[in-house]
Design a protein around this nucleic acid. Structure first.
Length: 434
DNA sequence: TCTGGGGTCCTAGGACCC
DNA sequence: TCTGGGGTCCTAGGACCC
């Protein structure tokens, strides 16, 4: 049996902990560059604001309905997430942190009433952290996800499901008939693993509800769709096919990509941006103690600006020897940029990706390159770089081609509605007046 | 004026090998 | 007239997730 614990409207809930005046009001959290809504309060959902809605299309709700929009504050959300996860872990013996606001817990070996136990954990998270969660329980991860959806929907829209399933829904406890009834009143598109495309195809085939999908023959599903959907069907039927990830596996690729605050045309500005992305990616790579064999770099114009001439290109630059040194990776990224840059375009986004990753302790033996082997001091240089930036803040030490951090850089992100780092920055601590 | 970022897995098709 | 079979590896693209 698995439980899925998922924070409600997570980013908005984090902001509300430190600004209770936002309770009861429509609130959205915006993506980087204050581009589009990536989290919505229930009140914002009721206004009809969709996930991913561009800010300029919904900002009229500020005037008409008192909508509050905040720039994403990922340092705050990450810290609140850690606190929530450590309490959620108390539900069972093993936990898989699946995303910033969700974790699966393996309930094997836990005695007693799981529903009651979950209600207690949910209450504790609400009291101690200030975040409301939904908890779903089921014999497979896909069913736990479904239960979680029912728990949250039953709370948000009374009458959509029987009230007893609000906040905590335990599919493992139900008679088959009750379980089928819940599945029959849930749309197939809500199933984990069924997205827009497959959802539409299923509807065309007359499969409208979760129950319709669960009753299909897995062999037919594999033939007509894919092994991925086959696995989903089996999971809905109660066969555990996915299992819990114990250790987070090492990344197979590492990316750092950004849209710019405003269009960029110069090569020199792109070089600054690419240097910063390359160094951030290299730092992530060192953190997982890996080496990259290849560096991919891309630049592109904005596909939304149809009046602009469009250009989008990427290139992969192999490294002479696998590395995690910011200088090697940046050098490759800048070479790639030089190769694909064309003047005259309004660039909107660029990115660096590290590919062909393997653990740093697996070193390819080579002939005749002894002179090239990095001296011990060079590894220490990267360690020192990371330590200084960890302690004194990102960007304290950087490569010169990243430009001068003090200057307001043309390509920097727009974040006009950023809240303080309430839990991660001394200067951001909330003041309490007696 | 203004539309995010970071991942994973699967499949099809081409190149190449014997 | 008639042109094999079986396999691997790589890449690009699609679909999905939060």
């Amino acid at each position: 049996m698995y439980a899925l614990v998922d924070g409600n409207n997570f980013y908005v809930s984090c902001e509300r902990v430190f600004r209770p005046s936002l309770n009861g009001r429509p609130v959205v959290v915006l993506s980087n560059n204050d581009g589009c809504a990536i989290a919505r309060s229930n009140e914002a959902k009721s206004l009809g604001i969709k996930m991913g809605a561009p800010w300029f299309q919904i900002r009229h709700f500020e005037e008409s309905d008192g909508l509050v929009a905040l720039s994403a504050n990922f340092a705050l959300y990450g810290d609140m997430s850690d606190r929530m996860m450590s309490l959620a872990a108390g539900l069972g013996h093993r936990q898989e942190v699946y995303s910033i606001d969700e974790s699966f817990i393996d309930l094997a070996g836990i005695k007693g009433d799981m529903t009651l136990r979950s209600r207690k954990v949910r209450y504790r998270i609400l009291k101690w952290i200030g975040i409301a969660c939904g908890i779903g329980i089921g014999p497979t991860k896909t069913l736990a996800k479904l239960a979680n959806h029912i728990a949250k929907t039953a709370e948000r829209k009374p009458g959509s499901y029987p009230d007893q399933h609000a906040q905590v829904c335990n599919l493992g406890d139900l008679e088959p008939r009750e379980r089928d009834a819940l599945m029959a009143s849930t749309e197939v598109a809500e199933v984990w693993g069924v997205g827009r495309r497959i959802g539409a195809q299923l509807k065309d085939a007359g499969i409208h509800t979760v129950l319709d999908l669960a009753r299909l023959d897995p062999v037919m599903v594999k033939r007509r769709w894919s092994v991925v959907l086959e696995r989903t069907v089996r999971e809905l039927q109660g066969t555990d096919c996915i299992g819990l990830e114990h250790e987070p596996p090492a990344k197979q690729e590492i990316a750092c990509t950004r849209s710019f605050g405003q269009a960029v045309m110069d090569l020199s500005a792109l070089q600054e941006a690419v240097t910063e992305f390359a160094c951030r990616a290299a730092q992530k790579l060192r953190k997982q103690n890996g080496h990259a064999g290849q560096v991919l770099i891309f630049i592109r114009t904005s596909p939304f600006r149809t009046q602009d001439l469009q250009y989008s290109r990427s290139t992969v630059v192999p490294l002479r020897r696998p590395s995690n040194d910011s200088r090697d990776i940046n050098q490759a990224a800048l070479m790639g940029l030089q190769a694909i840059y064309r003047p005259g375009y309004r660039y909107a986004k660029a990115g660096v990706m590290l590919l062909d990753l393997h653990p740093a302790d697996v070193v390819q033996q080579e002939l005749g390159l002894e002179d090239d082997m990095p001296a011990p001091g060079e590894c220490r240089l990267m360690q020192a770089l990371d330590t200084v930036n960890q302690r004194f803040g990102r960007g304290t030490l950087a490569l010169a081609s990243a430009g001068l951090a003090g200057e307001r850089r043309q390509w920097s992100m727009k974040q006009e509605r950023r809240t303080p780092g309430y839990t991660t920055d001394w200067d951001g601590l909330a003041l309490v007046r007696a």
